[in-house]
Design a protein around this nucleic acid. Structure first.
Lengths: 203, 203, 203, 203
DNA sequence: TATGAATGAGGATTCATTCAT
DNA sequence: CATGAATGAATCCTCATTCAT
């Protein structure tokens, strides 16, 4: 392969990245439906035609973007959970990962939450669902373990526990997205941990 | 007033209701953007023109619908909280109201959660925000009381506690909406209560 | 015929008049296209349905209105021209009639001028054209007479003279309609007469 | 700049012209309200979408068209009046310009006259008004001069004289537009001049 | 590949007209 | 006759997508 071919390939990849970043910014700001392909093209400083050289449709552009973010989160989460042994530790590192991911991709996170049910093509729902399930299953193992060891109470369903953990992190995330000045998300890490493990009642 | 005028008025009100119900069903199914006015008209068994005799735009139709549901929830919640004295009791009745409301208006609830951030006219966000804040403030009072009486732990911020409670109920709601067959929401009432008050750790 | 039948008929006629007057006001204010049938109905304090009991369409309502005004003008003009003998006198009384008519029906006059070419159904154009032609022909006779008697110059075409007279009266009318405060139309009577008969050049 | 960019730019300009010309033809034929955007698109042999790439609304298309014609007339009139010294000469060249302009843009001229009062956005009325006032003021100067030199009679208001001149040219224009076969506008130049300067009375 | 003008199906909205009461 | 809710054809406008250069 000629060196020029390599450079061309690298450039192509870089342009693709630039488009995805522009898309993330605009979609996050305006939502999928209110965003026009031209909006994204303008932000990316390319023409619409060029966008269509990289993505076959607006839908695919959006999908590619979300999938990429899911994969990134997936990779990170898998990695961190891999090295963990204790249940409580698992909850902590998972939460940390999520919060960090949210910080890096604030914008798109909201879409991820908000337009999830309605507007996604089936394929993507499956992909998001798969990651979610993967995390849930891993957590369920940990929760079972924790129950067995007497660390966690046994009158709760492990699946419900995953829902609860997810809910709490989403809830504070959402609050932060809606009102970024009022809340500092990183301060909430400890709050979520305390609430999840011990509840609000005085012991 | 002639009797005919009365009947006409009653009919008009009924037709308005029918349109709102049709709108609720279709918006819930397809989301705001994917729903056409003709979709709603067809479901309501009216012509598009008739819809515009009741609502000045698609936007207003949607807004009216959401506002109506918010007001219903607001009324209920206000009523039940009125009679409550103890903090723990407050949490319980609030949760009950929410779950019941969700059952009655399953469809639109999802929009309420999902499209909240994007696409809504400011006025509506304010209306939704007002109800939320009202509930939060009432809860904060209860939580302060509970802390004073030693019932609740004092190292949590009352506002954060409201976020946590809201998150948990939204999370399970969401799960139920996404997967109504798998989960029975009414069973989750006790789960949420337990989690919120006592957390997952064994005592 | 029962007396009641008479009253009914009188009422019907009165209602028709009321609708026409409302129509004149609204059409004059907003123009034909921007006026809705409901606008007229509201101004007349009737329902739309009632309007359709009197006029078979919006078009016909408009047409009836214009025709009525044309007939009024026609009657007046015919009357005044009937009694006139001298050419110069004819011009004077014609002008007077026009200006008076314009005063009474200021609003609709503008439509009469402005939407003449484009929006009228053929029948109406013919009707308006007929009146115009009738006046023109009468004037042409007078002008011919005036030329024969040496009162008017002979190097002008009598038809052109009618156009000129009409133009001058329309022009000042238009100015008055556009800017009613600045110009008092009745003051312009003498100006038009002087211009038409003697032009601007000093003798 | 690449040569291609230049050609593209030229083409774009040409297409814009073509659309304006099509619009002139259709608006002139049917009037603003009866003309649909699709009518114009069809006449221009473009799709509706393309029209909207050039003009943001039907209204703006119309406005742009009228403004363009006004500017053309304005330029011409300003130029010809610049070089004139004598009052009578001023009237002659002004009239010539108007008649020539009318010949070139027959169609739209009628709108210019007929739909002037109603339906126009304020901005346009001001633009048209500005040109008119500019011409009027220039003429008023000439008329004052002519009065001072004893060329014109002094018992007429200069402003009224401008109205009269305008009326006469509009009147014959109008007649020609309504009935182009019967009248040759260019023949009327002399008629208008004679009427305006000397009136119909024999001296 | 990059460009951006052209396309046209799709959707929101209006309003003259009808008709059951 | 009077009413006014219901109708739906007509029309403006948007924007994802294509394609010639």
């Amino acid at each position: 392969m000629a060196p020029a071919a390599n450079r061309r390939e690298r450039e192509r990849k870089r342009h693709r990245e630039e488009i995805l970043e522009a898309a993330e910014a605009v979609f996050a700001e305006k939502g999928f439906h209110r965003t026009t392909v031209e909006d994204v093209a303008a932000r990316a400083e390319f023409s619409v035609g060029t966008l269509y050289n990289f993505f076959s449709s607006k839908e695919e552009l959006f999908t590619s973007l979300i999938e990429k973010r899911i994969e990134q989160l997936s990779t990170t989460v898998t990695e961190v959970l891999e090295e963990v042994k204790a249940p409580e530790e698992a909850v902590r590192v998972l939460l940390r990962s999520r919060i960090n991911h949210a910080f890096r991709h604030q914008g798109i996170i909201s879409l991820d939450l908000l337009e999830y049910l309605h507007d996604h093509p089936l394929k993507m729902r499956q992909k998001m669902g798969a990651l979610r399930e993967q995390i849930q299953n891993r957590l369920i193992e940990f929760f079972r373990e924790g129950m067995a060891s007497g660390e966690f109470r046994s009158d709760l369903d492990p699946f419900d526990m995953t829902i609860a953990l997810e809910s709490l992190s989403h809830g504070f995330l959402f609050e932060w997205l809606t009102n970024p000045k009022k809340v500092d998300l990183r301060d909430k890490y400890e709050v979520i941990i305390r609430l999840f493990f011990d509840g609000v009642r005085k012991r």
